[in-house]
Write a protein that binds this DNA or RNA. Structure first.
Lengths: 359, 359
DNA sequence: TTGTAGGCGTTATCAT
DNA sequence: ATGATAACGCCTACAA
């Protein structure tokens, strides 16, 4: 019986159950089963169930069921200082790249009894800091981070503090933080091989930001592939975007065109940058793929319905999220074993934005 | 000093702060400020700060700052049975309709000190039930629901149980649950007026599911608009989709074409259904807008880059989310005042998928 | 104005 | 195998 209840011989916890519509607690279950709360706790927890007699366990579980008992995760968290919760840090959920990753994460977390807190940083460092602070204050057990930059002191210091985390899509330089990414280099190699096979020799690259690993890795892979195929290796054919978005892609493409260096194809750092190219083509009356072929990266939804449908590198976003979640759960639950990283395979999705050069 | 600490005269809580890297608690702050934990609590809470002397308040706040004190939301929740948390129930985050709504919600929640739990139901009733159960077991203070069906017993019973909630995009029949939606009827009226103005007289409608309010409202608005403009009012020109997606839109369009009833324009229930039309056009060599004009609904991202760019009804998704969050916070914090509902204005976005009929 | 005490619901550590 | 007890960190009557 509860300390704050009048000393009535209340079997079955009826006093409490009928007086208010509050959810039943462990004590209610214990009373209903005629055992102590501690025993009920043991009976209900699979990990400690073997400590009680089979009969008691059955009675308690039955009582819990009939009362509709749901353990209070907040009380449990307070006691165990585990929240069954992880934080997911993305730049912007409205970027179609991220929802599939988040779904992959949630699918894995869900079956493990975990939930995800999602926060958006809008690529703002200060906002990133405050959002991560807020996640930590909510006692998340780990972090999945999609906003990593090559030089990222914040992540470094979190890592030093022993915060469990896994990076997705990107990695940090010089830091042993586990990550899951697509095979960026492999994807670029596929793209260049495709264009070379079509007969292009002067291929440009609109690189993603050089402060992100994917930007740098893809740019480096691009130069390697160009050399491997013995194509025009002209630094003037490479432009960099400050952000992975349409506007910066358009700016970069304008810069490239204004530079006057001729080219017949462009490998965009990602699909959004490729969309920026489309915008510039429309502005300047350039036709794709007749004048310029374009390849994107990521295979966002609906690219098949663009004018023209965009050839791109397909990335298993859901798998990236799922693998990251699995790795994080391993970190959380497992011991100190060395955490590896993962490079997931990509594929070339050939559509209408690439063709033989007309010149 | 803590009960479990040895009786050392530990000023400034040094014993605890140095012995482990645990975050400081209220007691640590209290010790550092030389007051009792209760006083520290009052000083730190703006609502009770006036109960302590200005000097004490200053000392406590300074101590909190230097120690980097962050209140433990879990302990606070357990005590107050408030979680500063709301649940957001969407069908599928990878549907581009929802991320902007979620962002709108989060922007409002964030400044109020709340956070959102996002769950996906995949339009599965059982999954919806279990996900909402899990939200409730985590003691969310309210729910924002984007999955409402016209007949939705689950929502009814939650409402009866006094669960605070606000619906977005959809409403439930016969239930006084507050909702925030776009002006569906107004949008359809704009679409039909646009097509009628172009000279179309036989206009079809690919309606959304009839178990959703937006499906029904848009279909009804369509019939009204047709009559208002004295156009062909032929039931054979209306087809229904089982879900708001591309595949079902394509099926409905095929059915419409196979039926043989002539038409020169179609108002799709939403953008995804319109995309389904595009698929069928490609299959059958129909050209848009020359043979058939199409109007969508929602103005998802990147529609301007489709072939042809899709004319559609623009909906302020972020505002819908933001308003819903505001309403929910009102419900949670405010008294029992009558909660209204909101219809947000829409606009017609004219692009390349609509033109004069060629016949 | 400040301190004391008790409890939110659960689990871990005792003891029985 | 089970019960008693205390504690997780915080808040809030109530007492002083």
């Amino acid at each position: 019986m509860r300390p704050d209840q009048p000393p009535v011989p209340s079997q079955e916890g009826t006093v409490r159950r009928t007086s208010a519509q509050q959810p039943p607690t462990l004590r209610d279950v214990a009373e209903a089963a005629g055992v102590h709360a501690a025993t009920a706790s043991r009976a209900l927890n699979p990990k400690t169930r073997r400590l009680v007699s089979a009969d008691t366990a059955r009675r308690v579980m039955k009582a819990a069921k009939t009362l509709g008992y749901q353990p209070n995760p907040i009380a449990r968290s307070l006691k165990t200082s585990k929240s069954s919760t992880v934080g997911v840090v993305v730049p912007d959920l409205t970027n179609p790249l991220f929802p599939p990753i988040v779904r992959g994460i949630e699918n894995v977390l869900e079956v493990a009894g975990y939930s995800a807190w999602i926060v958006n940083t809008d690529n703002d460092r200060e906002r990133e800091r405050t959002r991560i602070d807020s996640l930590r204050s909510r006692h998340v057990e780990g972090l999945i981070i999609a906003t990593a930059r090559l030089d990222h002191p914040l992540l470094g210091s979190l890592h030093e503090q022993g915060v469990k985390m896994v990076l997705v899509n990107r990695r940090v330089e010089d830091l042993q933080i586990p990550f899951v990414t697509a095979d960026d280099a492999g994807g670029i190699a596929l793209a260049v091989r495709h264009l070379a096979g079509l007969g292009h020799t002067r291929i440009a690259h609109l690189a993603g930001p050089r402060n992100t690993s994917s930007g740098v890795v893809r740019a480096r892979a691009f130069r390697h592939a160009i050399r491997d195929h013995e194509l025009e290796d002209d630094p003037a054919l490479i432009a960099e975007c400050a952000y992975w978005n349409e506007a910066d892609g358009a700016d970069a493409m304008r810069g490239l065109l204004d530079r006057g260096t001729p080219f017949t194809a462009v490998v965009a750092g990602n699909d959004l940058i490729a969309l920026g190219c489309y915008d510039v083509f429309a502005e300047r009356g350039i036709s794709c793929p007749e004048d310029i072929s374009v390849v994107g990266f990521n295979d966002m939804p609906f690219l098949d319905k663009l004018r023209p449908p965009l050839t791109t590198v397909g990335v298993p976003h859901g798998d990236i999220g799922a693998e990251a979640a699995r790795m994080l759960l391993d970190c959380i639950e497992g011991p100190e074993r060395q955490s590896h990283s993962l490079l997931l395979p990509v594929s070339l999705v050939i559509r209408g934005s690439t063709a033989r050069p007309s010149a």
